[in-house]
Design a protein around this nucleic acid. Sequence first.
DNA 1: CCTACCGATCGGTAGG
DNA 2: CCTACCGATCGGTAGG
Lengths: 196, 196
Amino acid sequence: MAKILASKNGTKKDAITQKAAGLFRKKGFASTSMRELAESIGVEASSLYNHIGSKNELLQTVCFKVANDFTVSLDAVEKKEVSTISKLQEVIRFHIEMMLNNHNEVYVANHEWKQLREPFLSNFLLQRNSYEGRLVEIIKTGIKKKELKSIHPNIAVLTILSAVRSVEFWQRKKNNINSKELEINIIDHLINGLIK
Amino acid sequence: MAKILASKNGTKKDAITQKAAGLFRKKGFASTSMRELAESIGVEASSLYNHIGSKNELLQTVCFKVANDFTVSLDAVEKKEVSTISKLQEVIRFHIEMMLNNHNEVYVANHEWKQLREPFLSNFLLQRNSYEGRLVEIIKTGIKKKELKSIHPNIAVLTILSAVRSVEFWQRKKNNINSKELEINIIDHLINGLIK
DNA sequence: CCTACCGATCGGTAGG
DNA sequence: CCTACCGATCGGTAGG
């Protein structure tokens, strides 16, 4: 009866995926039923299958879209001939903006990737490990050039990647997040610390 | 047939809860069935209900045990008459050690609390907000005393609480984590930054 | 502790 | 896009 509204510039599949990301974030992938998803769109559950292959495919679409965005962004950062600090600032800024602009999708990629089926699960972890490894290299270079002090590169990368997720908490809180202030504070904290 | 082995110093309920925490972490709460949990213990699913009330109750037990541990620890920190930096170091250290020593439980409390039923869900969030608020106060005091530079206290707290979760990633990686090295690096990063 | 079982709900398909 | 439906699995209970 009610047709699925294609989101502007998108297919019906895109519209379904977007709704799915919102529900997966709010309730978790396993706790979201296809009937709920259908209802939130205004059709019967069986109608969804004219546009998508399976529930798990929706999760795959979300997770790999996010992973790809981060990879593309890091490609660009690596090519720039700027200081290590600048590169790290840019990486952190990109993470923060991704979380603010694609809240549902990034959250789902961060929290629900475990529900991916093989071979997608392995593929996703491979991409993530690669991303982390490239950040480790940036930090190692920075240490060699004396731009950074001598810290443990792997620990620093995981600390940064975790810290940046604090943005998740701001969506649930104060309505009006000043994203510039968030960025400045987090970047300054992670690079300069809390003293002086 | 096979009796549930009571863990040393614990009831059968404790043994079940511990197994549940491991499965909830590995697969997620919603994706773990009571039949799986029973099988991992070596009994039939129905036998579990002689020791526990419901699946959700297992989650409640895990989440509130963790929340309580953090609250008790913060109580002690607040009472100490030491510098703000020392207090923050102690808080960070406690988080890291909790994640290393009670990996499954802390992970579940961090990732699966959304599956809590009311009124437990509201209660859990209340406790978490209170914990965060008390950390904010510590930081505000530190700024007032010029022990910390003038940063946004709420952002700093969420950054610290998120950063500390990087420890999660170390369980899945290198087998032998040197916990002291982890602690020193993360604390130094969050307090002194990456430079000099 | 087990066997036997219940009602509900799940993802997905057939067929139009 | 819908109706009608399937087999599987779920959390949990009855009764011993």
